[in-house]
């Protein structure tokens, strides 16, 4: 039988080749959507940028100029005196050596804490994601539960533990505390990342005869730069900005920079030197800021990689 339906050819229905719209649809620069979108972005940017602007401007002014009261005005006479004073001469309680010594304290705390916590947590996450040993789920549950216990609860017990170990008031004690407290979130981060990598890759490596460390170092580690970047950023900023543990577990000689900053700002002898306070604050914040600027792109990629399977 022959099909009696006829199918119209394209040219029969569409004859109009000229005049009608053709090619990409034109976009208006000042559409309502664009005004709203960029307006919002602009406002948020200003909201975040203004405090930074005030800090930078104030830190570059002399005290007489500050007393005029206009905090938004740019400095008439730029001076770097407050920065030098904050770094080398500002008084934190009794000694007046500025932030310099404490800066190095913070470096000595941050670097070993970051390295140690990331090494341990990445191996933890790898073992939890790939090897599924007996009790792995229980171990993981306990670890995650640990992340929800308020720090204040553990402050005093840890003081006692460090005292018994002879590490109280010492930098190494604080390094241990930071490493332990970084564990839950970092382990979760690494576990999820390794779990998102194809399982067959791990199986293939086992068939190829690679062991626990062989797979970790030669197969997984080279694929994990984004997540290590995320971990480094989280840890550097977290530990550098920490105040509570720093003030509790170290002594006046080994205070981290944040504690010293607090002391500078809170020390009142005569007039409050706003410009020095601002300079000191910016100096303290410089390390996390640099980290963000340098690794921003990798950071975003790593967060995305950890979140989406693929």
């Amino acid at each position: 039988m022959v099909d009696d339906r006829t199918i119209p050819a394209a040219s029969q229905t569409v004859n109009d080749f000229d005049g009608g719209p053709r090619g990409p649809k034109p976009q208006r620069a000042f559409s309502r959507k664009n005004v709203f979108l960029y307006g919002t972005l602009l406002m948020v940017t200003i909201y975040y940028a203004i405090p930074l602007y005030v800090m930078i401007v104030t830190s570059l002014k002399g005290l007489p100029e500050i007393r005029l009261g206009n905090i938004f005005a740019p400095p008439v006479e730029i001076t770097f005196e407050p920065w030098v004073k904050a770094w080398a001469e500002a008084c934190t309680g009794l000694n007046c050596n500025g932030l310099s010594g404490y800066f190095w304290n913070s470096v000595k705390i941050t670097i070993p804490s970051v390295i140690l916590s990331i090494i341990i947590a990445s191996v933890n996450g790898y073992a939890l994601a790939n090897w599924r040993f007996k009790g792995a789920n229980l171990f993981f549950a306990i670890l995650i539960f640990g992340a929800f216990i308020p720090y204040q609860v553990m402050l005093y017990p840890i003081v006692i533990m460090l005292r018994e170990l002879g590490l109280y008031g010492d930098l190494s004690g604080l390094v241990i505390v930071h490493t332990i407290f970084g564990m839950p979130i970092l382990t979760l981060l690494f576990r999820n990342y390794f779990a998102s990598l194809p399982e067959e890759l791990f199986k293939a490596a086992r068939v190829d005869g690679a062991g626990f460390w062989g797979i970790y170092f030669r197969v997984l580690l080279p694929m994990s730069l984004p997540i290590f970047t995320v971990a480094v950023i989280l840890q550097v900023t977290g530990i550098w900005n920490d105040f509570l543990f720093g003030v509790v577990y170290t002594g006046p000689e080994s205070y981290p920079m944040t504690v010293a900053l607090n002391n500078i700002v809170n020390t009142t002898q005569g007039v409050t030197e706003y410009n020095v306070n601002m300079a000191a604050t910016i100096i303290t914040a410089l390390v996390p800021l640099t980290i963000y600027f340098v690794s921003g792109k990798l950071f975003v990629r790593g967060i995305a990689a950890g979140a989406v399977k693929g």
Partner: peptide
């Protein structure tokens, strides 16, 4: 262990080491 069994395996997702 898998590597001692005298087997080779080919996976659906190829599972090649990307680096």
């Amino acid at each position: 262990e898998p590597s001692d069994r005298g087997i080779g395996m080919v996976f659906q997702s190829y599972a090649l080491y990307p680096q």
